[in-house]
Structure formats: C-alpha cells, structure tokens
Amino acid sequence: MRFFLDSRKLILLAAGIYIVLKLLFSSGIVSEYIQQITIYVFIVVLAATGLNVIYGYTGQFSLGHAAFYGIGAYTSAYLVKTLGLNSVFALPATLLAGGIMAGLIACIIGIPILRLRDDFLGIATLGFGILVRVFFDNSDRISETLGGSRGFTGIAKLTNLEITFVVTVFLLIVTRNIISSRYGLFWRCIKDDETASASIGIDTTRMKLMAFSYGCFLAGVAGALYAHLYTFLHPSNFDFLKSIDFLIIVILGGMGNIAGTIYAGLLWVGFIEGLRIALPSNILDLRWVFIPLLLIVLMMWRPYGLMSKKKGDG
C-alpha cells in the first residue's frame, strides 16, 4: 500500500524499538513505573504532534491544548465506564470517540476564535482551557461518574504497550502523509502569509479549522490513551501548565518538525521523570527548581529548538 510509501525504514525502526521494549518489559528488568512512563512518552508525543500541526505547521498559537487532551480522556473513560466496555478490543473505538469528541469541540470553538491571531488566539485558547477546567471541576453535577473536583476514579486499565505503539505509529504516519499532501502545504502557506494564501485560492478559514480540529483530534486520542493508562483523571491534570508542557516539547523539537517532536517528547518526559528517580528523596523538592532553570538555559542556547543550530535574529 502506498500509505507506507517512504516509511519502510520508519516502520522497521519502530518494529525494532517495539521488540526491544517488549523484551525489556517482559523480562522484568524494568519496573512497572518505568513501563508506565515509557508508554506515557508515546502519549505525550502524540498529543504534542497535534499541537505541532496547529502551531508548528499552521502557525496558530494555542495555549489550551491540554483541554482537548482532557476532553479525549474524559470522553473515553466515561464511555468505557458507563457502557461497561472493559475490553482491550473496545479500546480502539473509545479512543476514536475521544479523538472525535475533541476534534468536534475544537471545530465548534474554532469557528469563532480562529480568526484571532498570535497572542490574541493564544489568550483565547488559554481562556478556553480555563473554561474546560471549570467544566471538569463541576462535572459531577452532570454525572456522578465524572467525579468533578474529586477526580474521575475507577477507570479500566486498558492501555498497554501494543495498542499505544500501534496507534501512535499509525497516527504519526497519517500526520506525515497529510503534511506532505496539499493540505499540509496549504497549512504552511497560511503560517507564512495568510493574505497571500487567500490570493491563490486557499480557503484559509476552512484550512485553519481543519488543522486545528485534526491537531485536537490527536490530543483527544492521546488523552484517551492516558485515561486508560493511569485509571484516574483529575481536572488539574489538564490545566494551563499541561498545555505549556506540550508547547515546550514542540518548541524544543523545532516548529514544524515531527521527528523533532518525538525526540523532544522523549527527552522532556525522560528528564522530568528521570530526575524523580535520580534525585535522592531529601532534595526531590528541588526538581522543579532545576527544571525551569534548564528550560531557560535551553531557550537561550537553542532558541529555535534543539535540532536547529540557528541563533539570534528572528
């Protein structure tokens, strides 16, 4: 199939990584905790790729990406719990449902707000993130199951290495293919110059909405995987700082660079979680003093992302 065109190397590499991980997991060398973090890296990469589509490729500044990640998580968890779909085989369907819900809400909210630009769009999406957070905090008024500010508990643990791996790799290839199609080209045109884009016949409103919805769809699927990995959701998991987390990964990886997002996601999660393991418990408090310092130094050292050697002037 041409779907996999030019991805043979990628697939082989992915398969290799999978085998190594599987062996490590089943050999019992790595702890449950490390296994969970490894799966979490895939999830974060998937969500960050969604933001990369929105911001890195299309140039739409979003500070509310975690809201869509949360919508996907709550949707899938709610479906599984109320419909009693406690089976790995039902998971693809609820993942899709989580993604579609996030994409749909992105589409509805995108129609009014995507005509804003730059920081104004950023602040509007940030505001939307707060609104979603308020909604999660009050969700127990709609249904007890959702748990409101106490958190959503008792979610079936369905996410495993296999499903995360297959879903992430599949969606990354889908994303790559869209990016190299006319749609990705139009998105990059819009990022470069919206007026010129309209002058050559690009329906900028529709294309922006499409990029935004698709990016949020990816976040939704990632959120759904997250829900069934950690089996507990709390509104604070999806707040402004989480959105910034995704943004950091996109910037570190380099705007409009999917491979970069993968590396940066791995490094960022690896570093944050690695510190938790490496630091002795009496100075564990210092973790969040080091992390922002590192972030500041990285931004000064490589303002265009870790992969780019470009400096200054922009």
Partner: peptide, 29 residues
C-alpha cells in the same frame, strides 16, 4: 534580555520558566 532577538515564542517559554522557577524556589522550606 539575552533573548531580545530570538523568536517571540522562546521568550514566552522562558517567561513560563521564570514563573515556575520563582514559585518552586520560593516554596522551598
């Protein structure tokens, strides 16, 4: 100041970094 000529987004991320640093640094006992 060192980021005056860098892309605006790196400056924004730096601002978030400064914010987190101040919060967690001050939260130390």
């Amino acid at each position: 100041k060192p980021l005056r000529n860098a892309p605006k987004i790196s400056l924004l991320i730096t601002a978030v970094g400064v914010s987190l640093f101040l919060e967690y640094f001050c939260s130390l006992k």
